[in-house]
């Protein structure tokens, strides 16, 4: 248990450190890199919850696909759009207060809502159990998901269709 506690302590420290760095950086690229590191660290958190498959998917999908998409989009914009001017940062720091209040309320309600039987269950993530539930009891979500995932393709099609039309005019 000591190793687990120590490792989680170090991990949480790193996440908090990166969290502050995200607000300090004034370039979107550097902010993005700290967020990328947080996403990869989150994969390690999932390992501590005995969810190896989700940890791998977290790194493959978030770090490997979604955030690279974002990086490609960043390079489409001119360099001056990707920086914040200093005055914007200064004027808005006071609005951290309601957010901090929200965070305190959130943590308070979480700690209050913990059931008494909330102990470690030695439950190991098993893909076979999960896929049995997913494909037998919740198969309709898979269908909805398939429709939802076709939406980006339709959106891309519309986007390029409009571009073609404006290009020909």
């Amino acid at each position: 248990m000591v190793e687990r506690g120590l490792l989680l302590f170090v991990l949480t420290f790193f996440v908090l450190f990166l969290f502050f760095l995200t607000f300090i950086f004034r370039q979107i690229l550097y902010q993005f890199l700290t967020i990328l590191l947080i996403m990869v660290l989150l994969g390690i958190y999932y390992l501590f919850l005995n969810a190896e498959f989700i940890a791998a998917i977290q790194v493959i999908v978030y770090a490997g696909a979604i955030l690279i998409m974002f990086l490609f989009t960043i390079f489409l914009f001119p360099e001056e759009e990707l920086k914040y001017s200093r005055d914007i940062l200064k004027t808005h720091y006071s609005s951290f207060l309601p957010l901090g209040f929200f965070l305190a309320l959130f943590l308070f309600s979480l700690f209050k809502a913990i059931p008494k039987s909330y102990k470690e269950q030695n439950f190991y993530f098993d893909l076979k159990i999960l896929s049995k539930i997913l494909f037998n009891d919740y198969w309709i979500t898979i269908y909805i998901l398939a429709f939802l995932l076709s939406l980006p393709m339709i959106a891309l099609y519309i986007f390029f269709k409009r571009e073609e039309r404006s290009g020909s005019n």
């Binding site: 990869v40 994969g43 498959f53 791998a56 998917i57 790194v59 770090a63 490997g64 696909a65 690279i68």
Partner: peptide, 21 residues
């Protein structure tokens, strides 16, 4: 001895792209 060895390889391959970009 990881029981998701193939996925680890795929994950590291996708992280390596960041080095290139």
């Amino acid at each position: 001895d990881v029981n998701l060895g193939v996925l680890v390889v795929l994950a590291l391959a996708s992280l390596g792209v960041y080095g290139i970009i």
